[in-house]
């Protein structure tokens, strides 16, 4: 078994202005995902809007320097991280198959990124 981080990205403005039907479709996708993934889900969460994010950034001049604390996400992009699942699965195909349950992978502005976690044997 291996651990994978599944990150859900999408256009934040599109998410904020979506219809009730679209919203219901996304919710249904997550219900289906959770039902199918079951105990393979180690953790999960939905993020508040990126306007609520705070970033601490290294200023790059030396070890003794204080980080710069700024308002907003680390990357200022239209597409933002909206949520995540931390999964345990046998292989990549299993995670890809599970991910197909999510409505986000069918909308033109969103998608999911699957990355394996470093295995500390």
């Amino acid at each position: 078994m291996a651990k994978y981080m599944l990150l859900i990205y999408g256009n934040e403005q599109r998410w904020e202005t979506m219809s009730a039907a679209e919203s219901a479709e996304i919710d249904a996708g997550h219900v289906a995902f959770v039902n199918r993934a079951g105990v393979r889900i180690l953790a999960s969460g939905q993020l508040e809007p990126s306007s609520t994010a705070t970033t601490l950034r290294g200023t790059g001049t030396g070890t003794g320097d204080e980080p710069a604390v700024t308002d907003g996400p680390f990357l200022e992009t239209k597409e933002v991280l909206g949520g995540f699942y931390l999964l345990e699965a046998a292989d990549l195909d299993e995670v890809v198959a599970l991910s197909r349950e999510l409505a986000e992978v069918r909308h033109d502005h969103s998608g999911v990124e699957i990355t394996p976690l470093v295995h500390h044997g």
């Binding site: 291996a2 046998a90 292989d91 990549l92 195909d93 699957i114 990355t115 394996p116």
Partner: peptide, 14 residues
């Protein structure tokens, strides 16, 4: 190896 792409023939559906 790292992302564990399986060494397998896909299922009939895929």
């Amino acid at each position: 190896a790292t992302a564990r792409i399986p060494y397998r023939v896909p299922t009939a559906a895929d």
